[in-house]
Write a protein that binds this DNA or RNA. Structure first.
Length: 424
RNA sequence: GGAGAAGUGGCAGAGCGGUUGAAUGCACUGGUCUUGAAAACCAGCGUAGGUGUGAGCCUACCGGGGGUUCGAAUCCCUCCUUCUCCGCCA
């Protein structure tokens, strides 16, 4: 969430930022400032009363020790009045605090100046286009949901039987390909200096709030009501929260973490051709990279992450482009996001396979993740993350783009991991 | 799942109703000393909110939340976590 003081000092800028995002309730900023004023006022009054009552309590203590019982009793009755006042103020302060937090939770992150204006994915800016020839497929080529059937490597119907739609079953070479990709992505991340983590796949509410997934994406997450837990929608949630309530030293930067996890998303409201096959699943595998950076370095880190993902796609021999998301398409917590899309020749459309974002201090403010500068002053860190990569659409792309009459050709870089060079 | 014990600053560890944000030790930072280092000595060393140009001052925080009391790290309730024993189990 944004810091109140940031809103206070940059109200015009924040208003413009909200406009860029098509945020429908810019009046909320005034409400926030008003609530914060009330909070401060209550705090002041309460502190004043408490200071008085602390002083009185000490005096009573002194009187008791001197054996002046009657005077002490008299002083006690005087304090009762203060007590009543402080209780009321405490309540008022608590209310102001929760009101303020609820309001702040509704405000999305301030978009970076580079974020283009626009409402929908149509308005995203092509940051890097595919400048090589598009793949051409042989006669009779098929979309991946046919190919998976043909080679018997992913069974969607079986997943429906066991669980429901969006929970495919990987089989034989399909399962092996899945495992190979995970291993490949992890090895590449580790080679790039990311430390591997295997986190819990279920998180508590505090963690969900830490990354801004709650309350924003509440409906997207599977909720385990009995224990008040959530299935993770991405490794970002547990991994970023490793550093919740942590104060780093400047020498700890950069913090680079990577993690493979299954991801669980309810995807309520999704329908149609766009969810066909592997295009949108309730459970899928992903390798995520997460970084904590000094604010001065975070955008350089973002560039490094882009280069990393580019490299992966290059090794997988998939045509891709990079989009810079417009204000309307930018996720709630992000300041700047680049999406990677690979081209699916069989479906004749672009598929999003990675999203790389800088959240600046939006998450760290919620998580209270800070660093101590040279003058021992605390500041919020910048957090970043990106998929490197999400598997299902990569698999879709590999199957579709690399299909030949003889079978599906595995890219060279992946062969040491699959142990075969063709799916047939 | 059942029965006990415990949760204090970066760590260790006092305090068990009054002036304790918290002794002491270690670690850490700055300084003195030294050719350099170590040792020794001196000083500093938590987080957050409020207030002030500032030094500073005020308030809160001893696992979380609530309560008793003029006053709580200290007493009570509740939740969480850890440890020990028993049971169950991949």
């Amino acid at each position: 969430m944004l810091q109140v003081n940031f809103i206070r000092e940059n109200k015009t800028l924040v208003t413009e930022g909200l406009k860029k995002r098509n945020f429908n309730n810019p009046e909320i900023l005034d409400e926030i400032l008003k609530t914060d004023d009330l909070r401060k006022q209550s705090q002041r009054q309460l502190d004043d009363i408490l200071a008085q009552s602390n002083k009185a309590a000490k005096e009573i203590g002194a009187l008791m020790q001197q054996g002046k019982r009657e005077e002490a009793e008299k002083a006690k009755t005087a304090v009762a009045e203060l007590k009543a006042q402080s209780n009321q103020l405490k309540e008022q302060l608590n209310q102001a605090n929760t009101d303020l937090e609820n309001l702040l939770f509704q405000v999305p992150n301030q978009p970076n100046a580079l974020v283009p204006a626009g409402n929908t994915d149509e308005d995203n800016e092509v940051f890097k286009a595919w400048d090589k020839p598009m793949p051409t497929l042989p006669e009779g080529s098929q979309p991946h949901w046919e190919l998976t059937k043909k080679y018997d490597i992913i069974d969607f119907e079986l997943g429906v039987k066991i669980t429901g739609a969006g929970f495919p079953v990987y089989k034989g070479q399909g399962a092996r390909l899945q495992r190979a990709l995970i291993q490949f992505f992890l090895d590449e991340a580790i080679a790039a200096g990311y430390v591997e983590y295997i986190p819990p796949l279920i998180v508590n509410e505090a963690s969900g709030r830490g990354t801004g997934s709650l309350p924003d994406k509440e409906g997207q997450m599977y909720y385990i009501g009995k224990d008040d837990f959530y299935l993770i929608p991405t490794a970002e949630v547990p991994v970023t929260n490793i550093y919740r309530d942590v104060i780093l030293d400047t020498k700890d930067f950069p913090v680079k973490m990577c993690s493979y996890t299954p991801c669980f998303r309810r995807e309520a409201g999704s329908y149609g051709a766009h969810v066909r096959g592997l295009n949108r699943l309730h459970q899928f595998d992903k390798v995520e990279i997460v970084r904590l950076e000094h604010p001065d370095r975070s955008y350089a880190a973002l560039d490094e992450m882009l280069a990393h993902v580019e490299m992966l796609l290059g090794k997988l021999e998939l045509p891709f482009r990079i989009l810079r998301l417009c204000g309307g398409d930018l996720s709630f917590a992000s300041a700047l996001t680049y999406d990677f899309e690979i081209y699916s020749a069989a479906q004749e459309r672009w598929l999003e396979v990675s999203s790389v974002s800088n959240f600046e201090t939006f998450q760290s403010n919620r998580m209270k993740c800070r660093y101590k500068d040279e003058n021992r002053k605390n500041h919020l860190v910048h957090t970043l993350n990106g998929s490197a990569l999400a598997l299902p659409r990569i698999v879709a792309g590999l199957l579709e783009n690399h299909q030949t009459p003889e079978g599906i050709v595995i890219p060279k870089a992946l062969r040491p991991y699959t142990g075969f060079d063709m799916i047939k």
